[in-house]
């Protein structure tokens, strides 16, 4: 009994610490973004609430905040879309292939996902420059899709492998072609997997930094992480209020997706890493 009591107290303390650990920086971000000056802690904690940071971030044309956000959303959505389709085709082929090469492909792709990004980015920069794609959406979407494909493939393989082969046969007999089987049977049946891959792909593309830093030049294609990383003040002093307001707005999409669909994200992450 004493052990049980002791244990539940420990767990309660652990829960509180966990929440404090995870959320304090967020709360700090929100507080700074809402206060008129970033140094409220030194002024005995007196906060002057105002939305002026949000207003200036959203209204200032020269900051291009809205452009960055739009670029990020479009690039991430497009990457997630292509990634799901291509990984879906691949996973279907791998789970249905009778040939011995499938494990080889899976482990090859896994090895690819371990490559450091920096060993790609130098060449990608030259390649994209040579075909004139620098500072376009394509310069990011294509590498993102390739970059996120390995994880997506692993996740989808684990979902597709659970779909019985009889379903493919039934669909063939019912008159489906290969494409129709995929579109009308496999994809809908594996919908939770498809959805969690879409979510993860979107989040990964949204958060990517190095490619975006190297392959974009200005607001025509620059994404929000780069925009915020390079956000410097005009007059020496860093405008923390504006940066935090921008950050708060920028993380809204991923934070919402994470909170609403956390179970799908957790499913995807665990299937992608622990069990193939």
């Amino acid at each position: 009994m004493i052990e049980e009591k002791f244990k539940s107290v420990i767990i309660w303390i652990g829960c509180v610490l966990l929440v404090v650990f995870c959320l304090t920086p967020f709360l700090y971000m929100i507080l700074i973004s809402l206060s008129s000056s970033p140094d409220f802690l030194t002024k005995l904690g007196q906060i002057e609430f105002s939305f002026k940071n949000y207003y200036s971030v959203l209204s200032s044309k020269s900051l291009h905040f809205i452009d960055y956000l739009r670029n990020s959303l479009i690039i991430s959505a497009a990457s997630a879309f292509f990634c799901v389709i291509i990984a879906g085709l691949g996973a279907y082929s791998i789970t249905r292939l009778a040939l011995p090469g499938k494990m080889l492909i899976l482990f090859f792709v896994l090895a690819v996902s371990m490559f450091p990004q920096i060993s790609l980015v130098g060449y990608l920069f030259k390649f994209m420059s040579s075909i004139g794609w620098i500072n376009t959406y394509f310069a990011l979407i294509f590498p993102y899709v390739a970059w996120i494909l390995p994880l997506s493939l692993w996740i989808l393989v684990s979902y597709f492998a659970q779909i019985p082969r009889d379903l493919d046969k039934a669909a063939l007999i019912d008159g489906c072609t290969g494409w129709q089987i995929l579109r009308k049977v496999i994809f809908p049946v594996a919908a939770p997997g498809i959805f969690s891959v879409s979510l993860l792909s979107f989040i990964f593309a949204f958060n990517e930094f190095m490619f975006a830093l190297m392959l974009t030049i200005d607001y025509h294609s620059r994404t929000i992480p780069v925009g915020i990383a390079l956000f410097q003040g005009l007059h020496g002093e860093i405008p923390w209020g504006n940066i935090m307001a921008g950050s708060a707005i920028a993380v809204i999409p991923v934070v919402l997706l994470t909170i609403i669909f956390q179970s799908y994200i957790i499913q995807g992450l665990t299937r992608g890493s622990i069990k193939g």
């Binding site: 019985p164 009889d166 046969k169 039934a170 007999i173 008159g175 809908p188 049946v189 919908a191």
Partner: peptide
């Protein structure tokens, strides 16, 4: 001739019903 053009029907041991429909 593929299954489609043979107009055969099949019932499987696992029934193979489409779970999403």
């Amino acid at each position: 001739l593929p299954p489609k053009e043979r107009n055969v029907a099949m019932v499987f041991q696992s029934y193979a019903l489409y779970p999403h429909l």
